[in-house]
Amino acid sequence: MGILSWIILGLVAGALAKWLMPGKDGGGWLATMALGIAGAFVGGWVGSFIGLGPATGVNLGSLITATLGALILLFVYNKFLR
């Protein structure tokens, strides 16, 4: 997957995670992209253990996997690092 695909997937997944997670979150577009890209890695890692598979491109399965990973990261950030 190319860098542009990771950025697009990260932006969409990070925005979805921030929209789905209740509460006030800081950060702008760059933080949202970083959250989504890191979420794609975390989601792919967790997804490989439970049978969902990794984030492999800009498609619905990868978007769901990346968004779930971003939700995990956002939850950890809000509960433990804030």
Rank of each mutant, 00 (worst) to 15 (best):
L52K: 04
V76Q: 13
A55I: 01
G26W: 08
N78I: 06
F80Y: 13
G2S: 10
A31V: 08
L81V: 14
P22E: 14
G69Q: 10
A13S: 14
L20E: 05
T65S: 01
G43Q: 02
G53C: 02
W6I: 00
F41Q: 10
L60I: 13
L73C: 07
W6K: 03
L20A: 14
M21L: 11
A34T: 05
G14F: 06
F41G: 14
V76A: 15
T56K: 15
A31Y: 08
L71H: 06
I50R: 03
W19C: 03
L16W: 02
T56L: 15
G10V: 00
I37Q: 03
G61I: 12
G57T: 09
G44L: 04
F80R: 06
I7F: 02
L71A: 13
G14Q: 05
G28V: 09
I50D: 01
L52Y: 10
S62L: 07
G53E: 05
I8V: 11
I8Q: 00
L74V: 10
A31Q: 13
L71P: 04
V42D: 03
G61P: 14
V46G: 03
L73F: 02
L73W: 04
T32P: 07
I37H: 07
G14T: 07
R82Q: 13
L30C: 03
L35W: 00
G57K: 10
V42C: 09
W29I: 15
L73G: 03
L30T: 10
G57M: 08
T67F: 14
T56A: 15
G61Y: 12
W29S: 10
G43K: 03
G36M: 06
L81D: 05
S48H: 08
L60T: 13
G23A: 01
L16K: 00
V12G: 01
I37W: 03
V42R: 06
V76I: 15
L4I: 08
G28A: 11
G28M: 06
G39L: 07
L35F: 00
A15K: 05
G51F: 12
A40M: 07
V76L: 15
L68W: 02
T65N: 04
L68T: 04
I64D: 06
